[in-house]
Design a protein around this nucleic acid. Sequence first.
DNA 1: GCCGTTTTCGGCCCGACTGTTTTCAGTCG
Length: 574
Amino acid sequence: MARPNEDVEALLQEYADLIAITGGDAFKARAYEKAARAIGGHPGDVSRLDVAGLKEIPNVGTSIAEKVVEYVRTGRVEAVEESRARIPAGVRQLIAIPTLGPKKALTLYEDLHISSVDELADAIRAERLRGLKGFGEKTEQNILHGIDLMRQAGGRILLSTAAEAAEEIVAGLSRIPGCEQCAHAGSLRRMRDSIGDLDILVAADRPAPFMEALTELPSTAEVIAHGQKKTSVRTVKGVQVDLRVVRRDSWGAALQYFTGSKAHNIRTRTIAVRQGLKLSEYGLFGARGGRRVASRSEEEVYARLGLPWIPPALREDRGEIEAAQRGELPEVVTEADIRGDLHTHTDLTDGLAPLEEMVAAAARRGYAYYAVTDHAPNLYMQRMTDEKILAQREQLRALDGERRMRLLHGTELNIGPDGEVDWPDAFLAGFDLCVASVHSHFGLDRRAMTRRLVRACENPHVNIIGHPTTRLIGRRPGIDVDLDEVFAACARTGTALEVNAQPDRLDLGDEDILRARSHGAKFAINTDAHSIPHLAYLRYGVGTAQRGWLTPEDVVNTWPLRRLRGFLRKHPGG
DNA sequence: GCCGTTTTCGGCCCGACTGTTTTCAGTCG
């Protein structure tokens, strides 16, 4: 089984949804949700555990442990199958629509026999929802808007989903004899925030074994096209994968070509033409004689065009060609530059792992420092208190310095509608750093929202604006705010903007980062980890930062601790 | 369904907001 923890998490979440839709015990549904999250966030491989081992995971009891074992052994769970038989899959799709939950979904199914998003959209247009209990005009509009949002995502998948699928496929194909090189290309290699399909590239003499292998992978659900040079499949998770096999001596040109972007490639091909050359996926050729002048590596291809190698994340024709020609390409930040994570949670609030386990996992990543920033009291459901956070601080101080990693005690404050935060100044002064984020009142008008965020920046204790736009990719647009004013305020006050690495956030996104950087703002690339596996999401944040042209100088958590502490004091020039 | 120095039953993160109601259900964080 490929990604057992994620598979099990998805299955239990589905069961929780089905229980909720069928009007089952809400607490039972929540129990499955909690178990799903716990298993998704469990660092070990759950497919290797027996019932007793599984029960040691918090929120997993006998019943769920037995279902997990049943799933690992047989690939299915009888109880889930029974629920699936009662509720069509399309009904479950309905609750993915923002503002539409399980209760409304069941009403739509029972009263109007609606069992897909398309049917729902049609029914609203045909005014079939009129008179349905609990459905008014505004509800119809909200649902239609939610459906629009979903469709805008256009079947694109999250960066993390794409990366995990690609790595699995690359690993599988790399094992085949005759594989000289294998890698992913396309928008995944450029680390876009969502991915349409996967491009996998192999260098080998004989394409056939690789084409065959792709169609036979356990993750392959459907073969879309199966040819000599290209094979396309759809995975069980609905991701389209295009595989191309090239000869080894074309590897560099092919990788460059299939990495894109299209706009970047148009520029490189134009440069080739001006030099009397022709660039294709097979190589860089003399236009007349067709003699191959470069193709083995990307470096060689770029060099022959008079350019340094350009990091994939920059290849969007957003000025990287010109910068490269001037010799002014940014030395973009890499994962190795990051010295610590400045936004993380523990099980004191909604994280899964206790403090000492999160700290140990962070230390294993080789960080020089690490900040714990659990939620503040105004996120009421987390039930934070002064006593709890102070007790955590003591516990954290006791762990400080183990394995040479320094610990910072922080919190994630809630920015209220007026820009105020949870605690008074005197209490905030006790933290090493404060992240402040918008978690409510998403609908303020632009002026109020802008004033709100600027006020947060002006708070002398607020060091980082967490997930600044609060967008959720494919689910919720960012808040309506004058970002330029916020970015200017960040630069003026010494408040960093977060590049939140959670794959469904990636917030700020690349274009906003570029704008913020032009204001002179600083950044912090943070995982917002709620479990140990989340610490590895850092790479998606780094990729996003690279797309925003950030260098280590721009990113405060690449700095040595001493310099970071100076920044956290927010004194001008500090 | 999970959990327990309030334990084997009876709770379960709590409150705000929205839209539909006419006193509250549903959804969200």
